[in-house]
Structures are given as structure tokens and as C-alpha cells.
Amino acid sequence: MRELIEHLTPRYSLGAPVFQRPGLTFVDVKRDKLRALLLDLRDKHGFTHLVLLTAVDWLEEGRFQLTYLLNNRAADQTLGLRLYLDRANPMGDTIHDIWPTAATYQRELREMFGIAFPGSPRVDEEFILEGWTDMPPYRRDFDTLAYSQQTFVERGGRETHEPRATMKHKLYPEG
């Protein structure tokens, strides 16, 4: 794995790799190099299996991380490619022509994170949610509890007490 990364790094200007454990490596990639890298990995290095494609919202850093997890099943090696997108106007490049199944992942990312993938089939159709009018729910700034409490009705009549406050109130109210 190390040789492969060393081999690919200059050509695709990869970031510093993280060797998580034998058989699992993460590395940062640049958006303009992604497609060539994926094709290279798939066709020349045996990374033919797209395990998953997902995003991580680094709200504080103002960017989305796209993770392309590729697997070389013969060598039992998994390579995670991390691609950072600007959070303000997230736009990814579709890879459904490389792996048709990526179209599904991209639909989900479009719906759940609001990341656009122009050209991906059915990407703008509703996928999981129906009649969703709020911000994409997997974004960090979407507060699911607040949304839930504003939208749905909960059964009332519940009240809890904090031990510390209760004891203060009852045992030493003066101080």
C-alpha cells in the first residue's frame, strides 16, 4: 500500500496518507485529479469495488469531506479518498459512468447534504424524503431535535428534576 501511495502521490498530488490499519488507508485528493485517479485505481491497480461514497460535514471548517472508499478485493486493501468541497456551494463531480451504483450514493448526498452532482441520473428526484422543505437534514447545522419538536407533537405531562437542583431547593434553599 505504501508503495502504491508513493507511486501515486507525485502524479495526482495526494495529501499525506493516514495508515489507519493494515489494509485501510486514507488520503486527501484534489478535485481536478479525482477522476483520473479513480480510473487509474480501478483499471490499473485493481481497486474495482466502490465500497461507499459518503460525505462528512466539517461545519467549523466550512467544508464538506467526500469519502470515496475503494477496495482492491484481491489484495484486501481499502483506500479512502478524501475530497474537500467548499461548504457554501458544494458541487461534486459525478462518477456514475465509472461505477453506475455511485448514482444512488450521489442521489443520497444530493438530498441529505445538498451536494450537487450535475449529470448524475435522477439526482434531483426525491430519494428518501418526501415533501421535504427544510435544509438537507444531514448537515451539521440542521438540528433534528428542534425540528422534531417544532413539527411533531410529543406526549405531554412529563417533567424531570435534577438531583442537584432538587436537593438545593429542599435542603439548603438559602445558599
Binding site: T67, L69, G80
Partner: peptide, 17 residues
């Protein structure tokens, strides 16, 4: 940190990222 754990479920590769 980040990691990916996989196993062979009855339907195929099951994993957690």
C-alpha cells in the same frame, strides 16, 4: 480519526464508516 469496519453479512459486505 476515521475508520471503516466491514464484515460478511448474510447479504454481502456490511460496513460502518
Amino acid at each position: 480519526g476515521e475508520t471503516y469496519i466491514k464484515g460478511e453479512s448474510s447479504r454481502g459486505e456490511y460496513g460502518y464508516y
